[in-house]
Simulated assay, not measured.
Amino acid sequence: MDYTQYLGRCLLLFFIAIFLDAVGLILFFLGIFAPFSFWDVLVFSGPIIIFLSLFFWIFWYMGNLEVAVDDFLPKTR
C-alpha cells in the first residue's frame, strides 16, 4: 500500500510531529494524574512539546503543497 497517497511526501516530518504530540500528551497526563513530587515539570513540559510539534506540522504541510510551474516563470506582457 502506498502511504504517500494518504500522508503526503514528507513522511518523516509527519511521524516526528505525531511522536511529539504523543509524548507531550503522555507527559501532560502523567503530570496531572500521577502522584509525583515533580508533577509541575511534567504538566508544563507536555504542552511545550506539543507546541514544538506545531513546527513539524507546518513543515509537513508546506512540504506537501503543490505549486504549478507557471507560477515560477516570469510574467511576460
Rank of each mutant, 00 (worst) to 15 (best):
M1F: 01
M1K: 05
M1P: 00
D2P: 00
D2G: 01
D2L: 01
D2V: 04
Y3W: 04
Y3R: 09
T4F: 02
Q5L: 08
Q5R: 09
Y6F: 06
Y6S: 06
Y6H: 06
L7W: 02
R9P: 00
C10A: 12
C10N: 09
L12F: 06
L13K: 05
L13V: 11
F15V: 05
I16Q: 00
I16R: 01
A17P: 00
A17L: 00
A17E: 01
I18L: 03
L20W: 02
L20M: 05
D21Y: 03
D21I: 10
A22Y: 03
A22S: 11
A22M: 11
A22T: 15
V23Y: 01
V23N: 03
G24T: 07
G24M: 02
G24S: 06
G24H: 02
L25H: 10
L27S: 10
L27Q: 10
L27R: 11
G31M: 07
G31R: 05
I32N: 09
I32M: 13
I32S: 10
A34P: 03
P35G: 14
P35Y: 14
S37C: 11
S37A: 15
W39K: 14
W39N: 12
D40Y: 15
D40N: 15
D40R: 15
D40S: 15
V41R: 12
V41C: 11
V43M: 06
V43S: 04
F44V: 14
S45I: 09
S45D: 05
G46L: 00
G46W: 03
P47C: 08
P47H: 06
F51G: 08
L52P: 00
S53H: 00
S53R: 02
S53T: 04
S53N: 02
F55P: 01
F56K: 03
W57I: 11
W57L: 07
W57T: 09
W57N: 07
W57Y: 06
W57G: 04
F59D: 08
W60Y: 08
W60S: 05
Y61H: 13
Y61L: 12
G63T: 13
G63H: 08
G63Y: 07
N64F: 05
N64C: 10
L65Y: 11
L65T: 14
L65N: 15
V67I: 15
A68G: 12
A68R: 13
A68M: 12
V69E: 06
V69P: 05
D70L: 02
D71Q: 14
L73M: 10
P74Q: 11
P74N: 11
K75N: 08
K75Y: 04
T76K: 02
R77S: 13
